[in-house]
Design a protein around this nucleic acid. Structure first.
Lengths: 344, 344
DNA sequence: GTCGTTATTGAAACCGTTCCCATTCGACGT
DNA sequence: ACGTCGAATGGGAACGGTTTCAATAACGAC
């Protein structure tokens, strides 16, 4: 019935027998105690290992003492390019440190998040990277309390005191607004998904209000659920365009919004890109292709993922200092969508 | 030194003691033998489990007998949207079947692929999904021979006789070409990354030649490495445009090429999209935004990922029939870039 | 020649769970 | 009353490693 693997792969005991030594010595061949082994013993073991093609079973070895080498990652939306880039950065860093990434996608489903969390615990992960909405505070708090190293990405959650890695939101917004101001735009609108207590969105909105005020720009915030109700976005953006407070520009709070905005502008007519400037947080591969080219503030996404693993690693190694925040700066890329505002 | 988890999480023995039963019975509480337990026993165990917040250790349970519940996935390029969507589909299917996905990104590095393969073996994965260039045939053959269920995605590798899931390439190309023909295009060029023995690319090129011939279209193939030498692409596409064999259209062999082509056309001048039609295999979120909107043949990417897991699952369950090929059909989305070829 | 020390090595316990097998007990057939 | 059987339960080996601790060998020092 079962596929019956031809040769049940060799164990440490097979190697020991083949080399004529004890399994303890073979075990020592890997790991730190290796230095204890004599030269002759080491070479005999090595020979047997290559002859039998032995690979230690990480699962078995994790049972007693040694660690699993697994790091869990909980993301809300794998299809978001931001998420993907972060996962990629994290994976790279894991590779560097000898860990493997166990990625779970919650698809923004809170119940699923809880379930995934359970599963991850079941695999005895050594650390956890979290990038979700954070509606499941309690189980996370428990994990944290039980000593599981954790790091938040992009946003922090009140009540969950652990390391956090993310963008310097105030700096990013300031970068965008001062660029717009320099280019002569006088009225700006920030478009964001519902803030809903998500810290990174809060920070962007707050910085927007402060900085736009400081620069003397007319400003307002459009907060909108980006489900499949494209109509409402069209109406809102259309109305704002009609107000005719030129020169005007849109600031998109993240990549998902930028996509939605471009679609809306495109639906509102080909000349929409000439009626308003546009700059978005998050760099996307197609930004240079749409309209006059969309200016962006690129998040250092890969670095964020990598830093998350790095934070985790220091915790795993035993660091117990107070939770720290790693804040990385975005980078401005200029394109046609924010060029000098002749759009009068 | 170490973070010293406050309470070392409860084991099956703790539960047994708490409930006043044997650990065997607790073990039975999970798993198939559960039906053996009497009603009273079951409820007592359940009470203890919830009281102690016990979660079975999957790692330990995999050691003796039961499976790890891990499925490995080797992808060449995580940043490719095609890959991401596939991973997402696979992850969904895994969730359905109670598996967890261990994703490794090789970044098109063959040495890395070998290393990752080793690591995956170390975790005793129950199945392996492969989407890489396939330069590492030997280790893969060994894994397959040792009984590890495997499934290839997007392409097959000669010499590796296992299940495969992918696009119906001939159908996709036919769909694109007959659409172009209907719209009045008479000269077509297929742009592809180097074929290099990759089966899906071979099939697309072959189908292109056959079908374009059958439809009586002037046709040629441009095979180009898409590194950072954008110049060469610009020159090649530019030269083709200059030939002036109108009405003409480009067929992009996949999403990465589509992006490169759009960038090239954009560099060649804003009116390029009016001088040639364009249709690409792979649907991308920005296709409706660029130029007149790019027509595409969407691959059923999520379904491909899901089917891959499904194939694996039947193998894990013991199916031993001959390797099978699952071929899924693409879907045409019409946009401005291929609308009636007045481009004379 | 005896003793202490250090450098190697191995035996056995252990990690948390599953599985094989033995045991108990009541019901049932004769 | 006795043997048989099935259902329910528990005891202990096993899984493939790591780790603790004891044992042995080699080597100077006294």
């Amino acid at each position: 019935m079962s596929p019956s693997r031809s040769t049940p792969r060799p164990t440490i005991i097979d190697v020991a027998r083949d080399a004529g030594v004890s399994k303890t010595s073979v075990s020592r061949y890997f790991g730190a105690e290796r230095t204890l082994l004599s030269e002759s013993m080491r070479s005999r073991i090595e020979a047997s290992i290559t002859r039998l093609e032995f690979r230690p079973d990480r699962i078995a070895s994790s049972l007693r003492g040694r660690k699993t080498g697994l790091i869990g990652m909980l993301v809300a939306d794998l299809r978001n390019p931001y998420t993907v880039a972060m996962v990629h950065g994290a994976e790279l860093a894991c590779r560097e440190r000898g860990y493997a990434l166990l990625v779970f996608n919650t698809d923004n489903d809170d119940a699923l998040e809880r379930r995934h969390l359970d599963i991850l615990q079941g695999y005895s992960i050594e650390g956890l990277i979290i990038n979700t909405r954070g509606q499941n505070l309690m189980p996370l708090q428990q994990s944290l309390a039980s000593g599981l190293p954790m790091v938040l990405v992009d946003r922090h959650m009140p009540g969950l005191e652990c390391d956090m890695v993310g963008l310097d939101n105030a700096h990013a917004v300031t970068l965008a607004l001062s660029h717009l101001s320099e280019q002569g735009f006088q009225h700006v609108m920030l478009v964001t998904e519902p803030v809903a207590g998500i810290s990174s969105r809060e920070e962007r909105v707050a910085a927007f209000d402060v900085e736009a005020g400081r620069l003397g720009l007319g400003h307002q915030v459009l907060e909108l659920e980006l489900g499949d109700n494209a109509e409402r976005l069209d109406r809102a953006v259309g109305a704002w365009l009609e107000r005719g407070e030129r020169p005007q520009a849109l600031l998109s709070a993240n990549g998902v919004v930028t996509l939605a905005l471009c679609q809306a502008l495109s639906r509102l007519g080909a000349q929409s890109f000439e009626r308003a400037g546009l700059i978005g947080i998050d760099e996307l591969e197609w930004c240079s292709l749409v309209g006059p080219g969309i200016s962006t503030i690129a998040q250092p996404v890969e670095a964020i993922g990598a830093q998350a693993v790095e934070r985790l690693w220091t915790r795993i190694e035993g660091a117990t200092d107070a939770p720290c925040q790693v804040v990385l700066e975005g980078e401005l890329t200029l394109r046609g969508s924010t060029m000098a505002a002749v759009r009068s």
